[in-house]
Design a protein around this nucleic acid. Structure first.
Lengths: 246, 246
DNA sequence: GCGACTTTGTGCCTGCGTTCACAAATCGAT
DNA sequence: ATCGATTTGTGAACGCAGGCACAAAGTCGC
């Protein structure tokens, strides 16, 4: 995080910088909800209603939207079309972002076929794998290249987002090649902590971690119940073998 | 979120409650790194080294571990085996958690075949879909049931974690059925904001949102560069693509 | 045109998570 | 047995994000 900003007049760059990551994630959600509303022909919506649909507090929603700018009308609400446009602008969705997928296994295959990629605006322009048998084979219309060619191909096709869907051991090497190919944003599905230069942005999607977090919650619940029983003495008859190790 | 706790003496339940969600996610990462270390025959490790491998600050790592308990030896470090055991205990990984996967499309298929599910301990015990052609067909060894049977089957097989991999329109209905089947933890891959009772825990994995966040970062970079040029008037002629922000 | 009503935008407070920095604990060498 | 080196565990400070609540702003009805 850079130093404190003393500005008062927020130019675009400062404002963009200032948007908290959490808010950006929510903006993407708002955008989806708004798109659905637009399709239903809704022209205007109030923060209260939108916030419910997005599953957040209405004050938070308004604050998030204020990062984007002031596009609401007091006493009325927000114009859906305008909001969509502005959020897309902030998120950089008015421009296309070339995507490269590395690792054409189960997941990579699914990604490559995901028809233009979620939400559109993310054309897949390159696929990579180590498997010699896959070389040149078109998957979802794009031929697979060898991972050794990552830097050259990414550079040539101006890839801005790299998706890593390889087995864990290959991930770091692949990541390094993407970086040397000029890719500064990476989406990592491999269960590995990637080491990258400061100016590279990595987002990870980690199934195992998600499952374990849920496991924690399951365990926590079981603990509470178990202890509650112990504390208030309420014997729950039909629990069927739920014994707590502490 | 329940009310504030006035505790001061931390019994197990409170401690479990007290672990911040972010810390839980990191514990899962530490666990993975530790497992790798154990396989390499490492017996003891210091917080500093472990923190680097996990990509976090060493103070944060120690604090995270302190939520689990005091299992380090000052002047030496942590015993890998002990740490693994304790983290597994806290995350509830000493017990199996039955998983149900709903939506046997591209992703659902991949998940069902994921051999015991990431990291093990998460046996898939039920599969569901709407497609009549899939009924009874075994995928990864488990026959597919109809989504109408979700409540009954989940109840019977004591499913504790439900995974939603359906198209967006079906997600909420599926979710409702899982909940009525007693499932309290849900992993949602559908790009939809699920509405659930307070006592149900939902984690979402949203590809479109991840891509859009990355898009934001790409755009932010582009903006900075563009504005930097505009502001200081420095025309960058032959940069050949590599421009450093900052 | 004016007043009542609605809804935005935001200043301020609160609380949580991160980071710092140091005392306590342990080990190994002398 | 004592001292120095090392590393943990945590109290305290800090900073950021979330939530409340209200003033500003605009609409609609009369």
């Amino acid at each position: 995080m850079p130093a404190v900003r003393v500005n008062g007049n927020g130019d675009v760059r400062d404002r963009a910088r200032a948007i908290p990551e959490a808010a950006v994630a929510r903006l993407a959600v708002y955008l989806r909800v708004l798109s659905a509303l637009a399709e239903q022909g809704v022209g205007t919506i109030a923060s209260e209603e939108l916030s419910v649909a997005a599953g957040v507090n209405s004050a938070k929603l308004r604050k998030d939207l204020s990062y984007v700018g002031s596009y609401g009308t007091r006493g009325v609400g927000y114009e859906v079309a305008v909001l969509i446009e502005e959020i897309e602008r902030i998120l950089g969705l008015t421009r296309n972002h070339a995507v490269a997928v590395v690792g054409i296994g189960n997941l990579g295959h699914a990604l490559a076929n995901y028809g233009g990629f979620p939400g559109r605006g993310f054309p897949v322009v390159a696929l990579f794998d180590v498997d010699e048998d896959l070389m040149g084979v078109p998957v979802g219309g794009i031929p697979v290249d060898h991972i050794d060619d990552i830097p050259a191909v990414c550079m040539a096709r101006e890839v801005s987002i790299g998706v890593i869907a390889t087995p864990p051991p290959a991930a770091q090497a692949v990541c390094d090649r993407l970086v040397s190919g000029g890719v500064r944003c990476i989406l990592n599905f491999a269960p590995v902590v990637l080491q990258v230069p400061d100016d590279v942005e990595v987002r990870k999607v980690d199934l195992a971690v998600e499952m374990q977090i849920l496991s924690f919650h399951v365990a926590r619940r079981a603990d509470s119940e178990g202890l509650a029983d112990a504390v208030d003495g309420t014997e729950v008859p039909g629990v069927d073998g739920v014994v707590m190790p502490r």
